[in-house]
Design a protein around this nucleic acid. Structure first.
Length: 505
RNA sequence: GGGCGCGUAGCUCAAUGGUAGAGCAGCGGCCUUUUAAGCCGUUGGUUAAGGGUUCGAGCCCCUUCGCGCUCACCA
């Protein structure tokens, strides 16, 4: 470990402390409560007419200090908050106060015991009677100053460079309180989702991440290899096909929260690995799934934020049901003047798009063209929660046909803040039709070349045992977190977002 | 992968092609109720890396690396 000048000073203090019989990294602590608990019990005692609470032992990271001749103030921070420490020569003596001045730096972990009191300026503080180092920090935290004044965080040049923040998330979290808050909110969101589905009689399951045949979405997978089995495996791109196998097995309300992996580009809303929620609900269809979606998102808002109206990117978004519903065909007529029903082939649709001066990749299938249109003309306009429904069949191989219309399926996507949030449909449960759809997609019973997707015969076999009608649903939890924490990029809601590898320095 | 932009002290940022600076942090003083404490003094740089042009490069040119925005990709 190469040390900077600042680090050498701190490093030398370790040896100096040990030479003076002090351990900079002791094994045991005597901390008996959190900072938040100490403040709460003081406020309670104060209400009972007392002026101090004694016997308090706190641990925390030193975030600020103001040292004077014969007294010193400091702020320490733990998971529950911040408190001021107040050192006086009267209680501590000259030697102890000198230890604080000589050995302690911002970023160190300290244990302090004493009485919780209010100082003359009215701030609840720990009047320190004893203290010790819990862990010495050698590297200074990347913040110049960071102070809590009247409950407001006042900052002076704290870590802001996104690269350092994401590569050294530990430093970002240590220094930026609002970053910690984002991840606490994220944890609450996931908890609220679990509560909702548990309460609605769904069971949570875990299905394979390493899969011999991947499927359930259109995405490029990561490939890996099992050495002993001499078998190539894929990291899952969705849970769908495994969860529906479980429904066949009689677990007819299941959900899973876990990681998906897609070997594609990164963007403000894409990370190579991301957290997905999927649920499958027997005896329901996509209309019922729409309603359940509205309910569970509202539940999450209630639990996590206490309100269903959130600010995202400067817009007030209202998650109160019902969401706006837009028929895909009608939506496109309104947005770009094209009635897709009048253009039943890729060629005719491409022609009208060209006439309208749209720029798109030639030679695409009809479904892809429609997908392009909705991405271009509809998605960015759906700021308020909106369900777009009834999708073209050829981009939805696992969704069930709409009765009386073989060209579209019972599928919807939910959009919020101009971003796709979720995707759901009435699940196709006819094994013969499913087989035909797979074949249409170019899946082969025998994959001659490695580029070809093999047929998922086991999935077809599961379905042929009899699969109940069901609605299925998938949602990127990261994107929901973006919406509920007002973060403009997915990296801000991922603890360790993917960054390009960099040589260690 | 393409286009545009960025990379200077621990952090946040300055610096017409002409001696690399400030605030905070750090270090040394003074200071017994501070709140970004204050006052005095002071240390700290391979200007991302490498090459080129020039009397002279943080600045201009080229290459590489990383980051950001954007486009493409993304049932």
């Amino acid at each position: 470990m190469e040390l900077s000048d600042l680090e050498k000073i701190r490093f030398d203090k370790i040896a100096e402390m040990r030479a003076n019989g002090l351990e900079p990294f002791p094994t045991r602590t005597e901390v008996n409560q959190s900072i938040g608990e100490a403040i709460a019990s003081f406020e309670k005692a104060e209400a009972d007419g007392k002026t101090a609470v004694s016997g308090v032992i706190l641990g925390g990271r030193l975030r600020a200090s103001r040292i004077m001749g014969k007294l010193a103030f400091a702020h320490i921070e733990d998971r529950s908050g911040r408190i001021q420490l107040f050192f006086r020569i009267n209680e501590l003596g000259e030697a102890a106060l000198a230890q604080f001045k000589d050995y302690f730096d911002l970023g160190d972990y300290i244990q302090a015991s004493g009485d919780v009191v209010r100082t003359r300026t009215g701030e609840i503080s720990l009047q320190v009677l004893e203290f010790k180092m819990l862990a010495k920090a050698i590297t200074p935290l990347p913040a110049a100053k960071d102070e809590l004044v009247d409950g407001v965080l006042v900052r002076h040049a704290t870590l802001a460079d996104p690269e350092t923040r994401f590569r050294q998330r530990y430093a970002d979290l240590a220094v930026n309180e609002e970053v910690r808050k984002v991840f606490r909110t994220r944890a609450s969101i996931v908890k609220a989702i679990r509560n909702f589905f548990d309460d609605h009689d769904f069971i949570e399951v875990e299905t394979p991440i390493l899969q011999p045949i991947y499927g359930g979405a259109a995405a490029k997978p990561f490939v890996t290899h099992h050495n002993q089995l001499k078998q190539d495996l894929f990291l899952r791109i969705s849970f769908e096909l495994y969860l529906k196998r479980l429904v066949v097995g009689g677990l007819d309300r299941v959900y899973e929260i876990g990681r998906d992996f897609r070997n594609e580009g990164v963007s403000y809303k894409h990370n190579p690995e991301f957290t997905q929620l999927e649920f499958y609900w027997a005896y329901a269809d996509y209309l019922q799934v729409m309603e359940l979606t509205e309910q569970f998102i509202a539940h999450v808002c209630d639990q996590v934020l206490g309100t269903r109206k959130v600010i995202y990117d400067g817009h007030e978004i209202d998650f109160n049901p019902p969401w706006k519903r837009v028929d895909l065909r009608q939506g496109l007529i309104d947005a770009c003047g094209i009635d897709i029903n009048q253009y039943p082939t890729a060629e005719t649709l491409a022609e009208i798009m060209q006439q309208k001066g749209m720029k798109f990749k030639p030679g695409e299938a009809r479904g892809k063209l429609i997908d392009f249109l909705l991405g271009e003309y509809l998605e960015p306009t759906f700021i308020q929660p909106t369900f777009l429904y009834d999708y073209p069949r050829d981009i939805s191989p696992l969704a069930k046909n709409r009765p009386g219309d073989p060209s579209t399926v019972e599928r919807f996507e939910g959009f919020v803040g101009g971003m796709e949030l979720c995707n759901a449909f009435t699940e196709l449960n006819d094994p013969l039709e499913q087989e035909a759809r797979f074949l249409e997609m170019g899946r082969e019973y025998k994959a001659e070349d490695e580029e070809r997707h093999p047929m998922d015969e086991d999935y077809l076999r599961a379905m042929s045992y009899g699969m109940p009608p069901q609605g299925g649903f998938g949602m990127g939890i990261d994107r929901l977190c973006m919406l509920l924490t007002d973060r403009r990029t997915i990296r801000e809601v991922l603890l360790f977002p993917h960054l390009r590898e960099r040589d260690q320095d």
